[in-house]
Design a protein around this nucleic acid. Structure first.
Lengths: 107, 107
DNA sequence: CATAGATATAACCATATGGTTATATTATAA
DNA sequence: TTATAATATAACCATATGGTTATATCTATG
C-alpha cells in the first residue's frame, strides 16, 4: 500500500473509540444503535466514526431493514499487519544521499 | 496494550512523514540532519516527529558525538502487529447489552 | 574559552479532528 | 399515507496536529 493511504488507515486506527469499535466488531457485527450505549457519545458521533472506518476499508456495511450492520474487514487488517514488516525499499533514497555527501560518517 | 496507548501508537504511525521515516530507519539508523534533505521540511519539524516516535516507543536514540542516531524499535512494531490479531475480549460488554435488551435481533 | 554545528524547545498559525445539536433520509409499522 | 425508528449529513466549536521562525542546549574544535 502506498504511504499516504497507509497513513490514512493508521490515522483511522488512531482513535480509542474507533479502536474499541473494531475490537467489538471482531466479536460480532454491530449496528450504530448497539454501539451508542457503549460509548458515552451521540448517534452522529458513532455514525461519523463508522464512515471513517468505511472509507478506509476497515469495515463493510450491510443494511438489514432499518439497521445497518457493520462488519470487520479482516483482510484489510491482515494487509496492515503485513505492511508493518514489508516496508517500501528506500535504498535508492540512501544512494542519492550518499552521492550528495549528505550521509553522516562517524565511529 | 491498553486501548488508549495503542491508539496513541497508531496515531504516531498515522502521518506520511513519520511512516516514511520508519521505513527509512528500517533500512539503516539515521540522525535528524540526514532525514532533513529527504523531506522538504525544517529541522524542528523532523525533530518533533522524532520526539513523537520516541515517546510512543517506536524508536530509540543513541548519541554519537554531536549527532543523535535514531533506531527502529522492531519489538514495538512486532507488538503492534500482534495487537492487530489479539483484540481485547469484549464479550462481557455484549453480555451487559444483552441483559439490558440493547442488542438488535433481526433476520 | 569562543565559535560552529547538530538537535531540542518555545511560540505561533492554519488545518484537521472529534464532539455537539439540528435536520435530512430511509425503512418499517400503524 | 402518516408516524416512528435508525442512520446519515450539515453546521458549528474546542482542541490536537504539523508546519513555521526564533532561540536555547549540547558537543566538538580552534
Amino acid at each position: 500500500m502506498e504511504i499516504k493511504k497507509l497513513a490514512d488507515v493508521f490515522k483511522a486506527l488512531g482513535d480509542p473509540t474507533r479502536l474499541k469499535i473494531i475490537a467489538l466488531l471482531n466479536y460480532r457485527d454491530c449496528c450504530v444503535c448497539e454501539l451508542m450505549p457503549i460509548f458515552n457519545v451521540s448517534q452522529p458521533s458513532i455514525s461519523k466514526h463508522m464512515q471513517r472506518l468505511k472509507v478506509t476499508d476497515l469495515v463493510t456495511e450491510t443494511r438489514k431493514g432499518q439497521w445497518v450492520f457493520y462488519s470487520l474487514n479482516r483482510s484489510k487488517l491482515a494487509e496492515i499487519q503485513s505492511s508493518l514488516e514489508n516496508f517500501p525499499d528506500l535504498s535508492e533514497t540512501f544512494k542519492e544521499l550518499e552521492e550528495k555527501g549528505l550521509l553522516v560518517s562517524c565511529d
